[in-house]
Design a protein around this nucleic acid. Sequence first.
RNA 1: GCCCCCGUAGCUCAGGUGGAUAGAGCACCAGAUUCCUAAUCUGGGUGCCGCAUGUUCGAGUCAUGCCGGGGGCACCA
Length: 558
Amino acid sequence: MKARLDFLLRATIDECFKKGVLKKAPLPDFVIEIPNNPAHGHFATNLPLALASSQHRSPREIATIIIDHIKDERGLLENSEVAGPGFINFLISAKEWYGILSDIVTRKGDYDRNRVRSGERVLVEFVSANPTGPLHLGHGRGAALGDTLCRVLSFCGYDVVREFYINDSGQQITILGESILNRFKQVNNPEYPFPENGYHGDYVLSLAKTISEEIDLEKLTEEEAIHVCTRKGKEILLEEIRQDLKRFRVAFDIWYSENELSSSGLLENTLEVLRGNGLLYEQDGALWIRTAGFGDDKDRVIRKRDGQFTYFASDISYHLEKHNRGFAKAIDIWGADHHGYIPRMKAALLSHGIPEDWLSVMLIQLVKLWKGGQEIKMSKRAGNFVTLQELLDEVGVDAARFVFLTKNHDSQLDFDIDLVKKQDSDNPVYYVQYAHARICSIFRKAGDAGISIPEKPDGLLNLLSLDEEMVLIRTMAEFPAILAEICKTLEPHRLTYYLTALASSFHRYFNLGTKIPEHRIITPEKGLSQARLTLAEGVRTVITNGLRLLGISAPQRM
RNA sequence: GCCCCCGUAGCUCAGGUGGAUAGAGCACCAGAUUCCUAAUCUGGGUGCCGCAUGUUCGAGUCAUGCCGGGGGCACCA
């Protein structure tokens, strides 16, 4: 709708230039927006204000000229008027709004599919938890965010690949193995030393049990035993991570192993290339990469004095490999504690001529956990944390996904376990789901009464005339813009806000009927009932589509 | 010291590329159910939008500085 108005306005300005009623000048930036105040119409533009300086005329004068020259042959507009310092407020004709409703109920689940981009290849990497313990709340937030973003991007026509990068080599994986072996040994020998920085969680003990039942650890040398514990431990944990994510309705296309990255020789190749470009040098016995020249504040070590590569080395290699796979854009979702990592990563890419905006890094701020009015410090190593699994047991997948997306990812999220547990009926997700269930119920009643939506309801829609009905249609019409915006800003939380607003408008509309029987959806007048059912069907469609993008179920009954 | 995020109603937070009178949920108070699901709805808000300066027709929004809270600044992962 906004696009049509934009088109009409630009045509009008051209016309004004041609006729000489406005001086020819480059078209300035202007906006068409939905005003906060309903008295200001359905849409408003600041175009006259933006034109004022180049025209040397008052904005109100320009606004009048524009309005006089609008050639609205299709009858898009019902009214246009000058307002305030020089805005133009537009009222769209009812017929246009009915057209949108008709479009929604015709296209159903495909309403607004593929509007933004077609086929641009995007790689989204998220969660990427180390297989050294179960997923916790922070991973849940990243999973909900990344998955919803992927669903929206894909719905809007991007060719999306979801990837989980497995940090399955390096120091911390070995420490996992040592921790497991320790728990095994301690059963008979409580004095057996626990590794420094070892993992304390209860899951380590159960891993020790599982592994020792399968393999006789006593028969192995300590080195062999650690090796076995490491390998089996990460295997089991990775499988648990997969299961947790599956339960959370998050699916990945690719599980990318760091181990394979180095064993396949990719890391070495990358180093060769870097060396060839003169980007590497030795100092103090370590190998450094020159990132300082590319926007980082200092050079970075990629191979330590002890001969081990840093994570940065494989991360560079990994990201270059992503680029080689031909993605137009890469999105990484990282914990906020990695923010210092962004400049050096981008610098490394830039040194290969990969532009800065190829990679978007979304940082998720901390999830703070509250229980019994106290903050619980989460630490995997101290074994003190609430797992995603526990959270899902408490509040369910729907509520968890929704709550994770009620705040912008770069704001901290206070997650009060007690509150969300209690929240049963106060939880906002139920509010939206209830609107859906309620509409389903109305359709069951209508079915009992022998009323259904006709094949072509278009002719009946002009029976919709209540303010509340028109508000609903206009809100539904915003859905495409919301999705487009999420693609642009990478902020899926806008969807939860939008759905809450839509559900609210519907509940309000429904309740009109409790006071005034003529305003009920099912009335003695068949045509009117059919028109209103079409409206309800539109709302149901948009809510269903929205919830599907959030990975949340749309129940028929509650 | 440097970097990132945050600061909006009692609380938790939304506030498209700057627009007209800044919003929602929770909490609190008062109401609505012979009627399509009350998990709902209606009514009730005197907010230095952290402070200051700047940019301009116009700033919660942009720029700079300061104050306050959180996080990060390793040859850790």
